[in-house]
Design a protein around this nucleic acid. Sequence first.
DNA 1: GGCCCTCTCCCCCGCGCGGCGGAGGCGGAT
DNA 2: ATCCGCCTCCGCCGCGCGGGGGAGAGGGCC
Lengths: 220, 220
Amino acid sequence: MNPPAMIRVVLADDERMVRTALRAILSAEPDLEVVGEAATGAEAVSVVRELRPDVVLMDVRMPGTDGIRATERILATLDEPPRIIVVTTFENDSYVYDALRAGASGFLLKRADADALVQAVRLVARSDSLLFPAAVRTLATEHARTHRAPPAWVARLTAREQEVLRHLAGGLTNAEIARRMEVGPATVKSHVAAVLAKTGARDRTQAVIAAYEAGFLNAG
Amino acid sequence: MNPPAMIRVVLADDERMVRTALRAILSAEPDLEVVGEAATGAEAVSVVRELRPDVVLMDVRMPGTDGIRATERILATLDEPPRIIVVTTFENDSYVYDALRAGASGFLLKRADADALVQAVRLVARSDSLLFPAAVRTLATEHARTHRAPPAWVARLTAREQEVLRHLAGGLTNAEIARRMEVGPATVKSHVAAVLAKTGARDRTQAVIAAYEAGFLNAG
DNA sequence: GGCCCTCTCCCCCGCGCGGCGGAGGCGGAT
DNA sequence: ATCCGCCTCCGCCGCGCGGGGGAGAGGGCC
């Protein structure tokens, strides 16, 4: 083995103990070298800009600039940016999607064992061909587009009004909705009026648009 | 090093040469063991069911049952299924999304070097905590929901009609559309009528629904 | 020179829609 | 017992919308 394959790593985590633990694990490997550390997102950006590592282990939660923003900055400002592995505690963290969208090459849980950590670093370091490349980013971006936080008006709609809105989004006329709901047309008009008022829509078309944009048709 | 950490691998690829090459690469590693091969998807399912490997390298394109379906079958029928790495030639293959949705743990390009391959196998084998777990699958599923094949009517819309449809999906009235397009209201009516005819919609609301369902607002 | 498509605009007509105000019943909070 | 929210309906009115049919101008194709 000749020296050229040395993988240079930077650690970014606000907890000193975590950094120490990571350094201990990585330094035990002959082909890995921890060249720098950072305790904040901003620090991470400048450290990476200075040291030009191959891989960055980036914690999500850090004071000030968080790991996601730091990842964005690094990938945006450097022409040959390092691979970034975002680290967090829980898998179902909503940060996962943000990390992927920001361009992170990997996502690792803190409960991962030392072996997995080391191998993840090696894999990410020398693979443009790795597991999920650009594809995942488009997926994450899409996810963001689709899964916005539902507007406040959704919760304010009564059961009947939600039912009506679904039928509106089905392209039905008031008369058709009335038949399907087995009520009078006048009742439907009332519900439609309520929906329009609560959604801020001017007409049924805008209400349907609001329903789509809110992801109303996917939920409950 | 004690023997318990032996990683058992099954190769599934219809080209004999590919299997041979993969076997050569993996067998060179002391901790990897190729325990079986398969030339078709169906064969892969039965081989895996029999040999219970830790990792499967699965080609996408195979005669009969393809790698995607085979992946689905394996993950669905076994209670402790192996990790499956799907292998293909091009990164922008549409199979990527299918593979992720099917539950593959990884996606690897055939042009990946031997090193990356080996490390990917190791990583996937011993990591439930690995890069992207359940999250990616939901992303891929979402992607499938959003990205249906656009209906035929989309192409039939003229430039002006598409423009009008976008404004319809913005919730505008004919008069507002006319102002924004700097034409007369009567002209807009004509275009709207054409859009309704081509989309098969009864009114503007249904046209907007069609636009959303077709993913018309994302494209072009 | 023809033909066809597109874009532009005009007329009239019918109607579904949305805004307005009102009303009665019913159930849960206080 | 009283209030309030929800569901259920009624009338009236104005208007934007959609259907039908027609017409002229420009551009591409053969």
